[in-house]
Design a protein around this nucleic acid. Sequence first.
DNA 1: CTTGCAAGACGATACGTATCGGCTCGCGTG
DNA 2: CACGCGAGCCGATACGTATCGTCTTGCAAG
Lengths: 213, 213
Amino acid sequence: MAPTKAPDSSRRSDRSRRAIHDAALALVTEVGYRRTTIEGIAARAGVGKQTIYRWWPSKAAVLMDAFLDLAGRSAEGAGSGEEAQSDEAAQGIPDTGDLVADLKLVLRATVDELNDPVLEAPTRALTAEGIVDAKLGAEFVHKLLDPQLALYVTRLRAAQEAGDVRADVDPRIALELLIGPLMHRWLLRTLPLTHAYADEIVDYAVGGLAPRP
Amino acid sequence: MAPTKAPDSSRRSDRSRRAIHDAALALVTEVGYRRTTIEGIAARAGVGKQTIYRWWPSKAAVLMDAFLDLAGRSAEGAGSGEEAQSDEAAQGIPDTGDLVADLKLVLRATVDELNDPVLEAPTRALTAEGIVDAKLGAEFVHKLLDPQLALYVTRLRAAQEAGDVRADVDPRIALELLIGPLMHRWLLRTLPLTHAYADEIVDYAVGGLAPRP
DNA sequence: CTTGCAAGACGATACGTATCGGCTCGCGTG
DNA sequence: CACGCGAGCCGATACGTATCGTCTTGCAAG
């Protein structure tokens, strides 16, 4: 059985790891995912090919780690500027007592993130890869998406206790009513993804389509 | 300028075209999109590689045509059996006067299509490709998605005239409130895609999350 | 006799593996 | 405390395989 695996992670070069992350993200945004190659990443990072193959099983895995690293770094630099919105999404949905306003704030921040040219290419690449590769998709959902969605559940439960949402509503489904349309429009590029759209989604989802009696 | 293009389509072999379609679809479902190769398609179809390169610009384009062909064929064989649901989706959303019931019927049919093992692999492959490749994505949306969505617009407008949906609702956004969550769950595999889920989405979207006063 | 067709040779990449010195650690001896 | 030694990651690169997209050839359909 003796696995050829088990490189000693304590001896791992942090310098190389970061260089690989940066090179991967840069190449993906510059030439696209398809034309990003392991050899290209290695060359750009000034790193041996084997160093990549030693630590990652696939191109997608490299990009996933690089992306997590990026997200982690941008989350650290929180509370430091005008982009209070992004921080909310990473650290919790605000609860001002006004559910509609809170949701609009967060969904607008999500729209901004999806439209961010730095994040767009890698996010699309990872999402697309996850759609076709179930294993990678599960990892993507577990590491990146689920933590985000949990924040919505929390906020929606609070809304239920405050009487702003019906008690029989499943927060998990309610959240998808908000996120689903956003992602749908972004992924398929059916129409531009704007703040106005985020607002409308919140209004429609909370209020429903049917007329009030 | 003289483009190397312009093969004479009147002399094109229909036999080869169909064989290529079939081989492409079969290979995608059998070994996945990544490992289907142009050479593999050609071999399986009993066709020269050049015959593929002559008529299609990319692997994705082949699959797109094959998929359209498949959809077209299954649409032709309509009204012939128990799968009345799928036909509705292809030919129009029923209008029984009960908006919620009509939408549930159609969304359930969509769930069935997405869960159909024959359609799943090629649909995922094309969608994923379109997410990364904007040009192909636009073609995908225009040829496959938009026609479907137009049916929802029609039905929702009728509902507005019947007073089942508020007059100030934008049907285009209302439709995304229904389709978005479905596609989100299917694409990202967050949770199983069931009839029950389709029903809940319709209930939530039409009725809204907020309590009735 | 023009043109698509099947078959496949061809150069170009990229893949993933295997080595090669070089360098840096941890550890044990004096 | 110093010194040396082995283990293991590092950058680099050669290697064989796979797939790409183009090009060539002979044949058969139109």
